[in-house]
Amino acid sequence: MDLFAQIAAELSTALDRPVVIDRTQTLGGGSINHAFRLDTSAGHVFVKTNHADRADMFAAEAAGLDELAAATALRVPRVLARGSTDTQAWLALDYLELGGPPAPARFGEALAQLHRHTADTFGWTCDNTIGSTAQRNTPHTDWVGFWQSCRLGPQIEFAKLDGAPRGLIGDCERLHDDLPAFFIDYCPRPSLLHGDLWSGNWGYGSDGAPTLFDPAVYYGDREADIAMTELFGTPGAAFYAAYDAAWPRDAGYRVRRTLYNLYHILNHHHLFGGGYASQAARMAGSLRAELRG
């Protein structure tokens, strides 16, 4: 059975009615997966595909979308079906029309609502990916320990393997060891996080509803989500004002924002190389300077 025949069959089972694919349109914009819009007898469907050995990545993404949907704070695409052929893994979701009127204040309020969904431990029930990089989510009762072993630590090891400058590696190793100093007066709760909240992973529906997609879900410090909204484009001042009105950020956020975004810049160095090493070095250097006072 070829890919789209399998997708049609699985959608028929999931939706409990025959689904016929009338048209397949290739979509651009992604650097990790191939994406398609299917015009079907059951409506539009969004499908992403990758190599068959990436089936676990799609399983984790589907679980993350379900976790976010259960919180009912923000719109996310509904998971319809997933599967794999001998050569390709795939994930089928509701096709969401984006590009509606921006509603940043509504988005800020809704994100604060999402973050009020908490767990007993940091991490999650399964590992997932950040971009295409494996992301460890081993549950921890201690946030600092989680960030050391599941976030900063693995990126330091990638940096060594990738031949990053020794000065950058040394600064990151010292930050790893000194991490408790950033949390002396701050004890975050394990909040439900999108996990990869740059501007390419959120938008506004045709009705203006804030919408999230492409998550890297885990439970962690809510500041990590907010920090990423400032890394590659931002939702605007009204978003942050509304978030703070619903749940004010701690005064130490300004410093920890750099700490959390360092993880993503190190990951971009791992994935893409280029100038991300020098950006990471500047961030690590500024964090070391904060510790020196």
Rank of each mutant, 00 (worst) to 15 (best):
G28R: 10
G131K: 08
H176P: 02
L197N: 06
H115G: 02
A227N: 10
A164R: 06
G100D: 05
A52Q: 07
G252S: 02
H268D: 11
G43I: 07
D94Y: 03
L80F: 10
H117N: 10
V144E: 01
R37N: 03
T85M: 04
P165C: 12
A42Q: 01
R37M: 08
G28L: 10
A9V: 15
W147K: 01
T13C: 07
V45N: 06
S12H: 01
G252Q: 07
F46R: 03
L193N: 00
F4A: 04
Y243G: 04
I130W: 13
L262T: 11
D178A: 12
T87A: 10
I21F: 06
R222E: 05
N201D: 05
R282K: 07
Y95P: 03
F107K: 09
V19H: 00
Y95H: 04
Y263E: 06
G220A: 04
L98C: 08
R82M: 15
H176R: 06
S199Y: 02
L262Q: 08
A224C: 14
G99Y: 09
A14T: 15
T85E: 08
G220Q: 07
D250R: 06
G195Y: 03
G64C: 15
T118H: 09
T121W: 01
S286G: 05
E230P: 03
R257F: 07
R136I: 12
P180F: 02
I184D: 05
G163I: 14
V255K: 04
A242Q: 00
I130G: 07
H44Y: 07
S132F: 11
R151Q: 11
G273S: 15
A251M: 02
A92C: 12
R256P: 08
K160L: 11
G64W: 11
S84K: 15
T24H: 06
A71K: 03
R23Y: 12
F36G: 04
F36V: 14
Q6C: 11
Y219W: 07
D177S: 08
I184K: 00
D221V: 11
G123S: 10
P102A: 10
D66C: 08
L161T: 14
L179I: 11
H140L: 02
T40Y: 06
R256M: 11
V79N: 02
F213L: 13
T138M: 07
L212S: 06
A110N: 01
N201W: 10
P101R: 14
L3D: 04
S149M: 05
G99Q: 03
G293F: 01
A73Q: 02
A59H: 10
V47P: 01
L266W: 14
A110W: 03
V19L: 05
Q6K: 09
E173L: 14
R17Y: 03
K160P: 09
E157Y: 05
Q155G: 08
A63K: 13
E173D: 09
A237K: 08
K48Y: 01
P139T: 09
H51S: 11
A35N: 12
A59N: 09
W198S: 07
L179S: 02
Y276P: 08
F232P: 06
Y253R: 03
Y218H: 15
N201Q: 09
F146A: 07
S84I: 09
G208V: 12
R249P: 00
R116K: 02
A55V: 15
W202L: 04
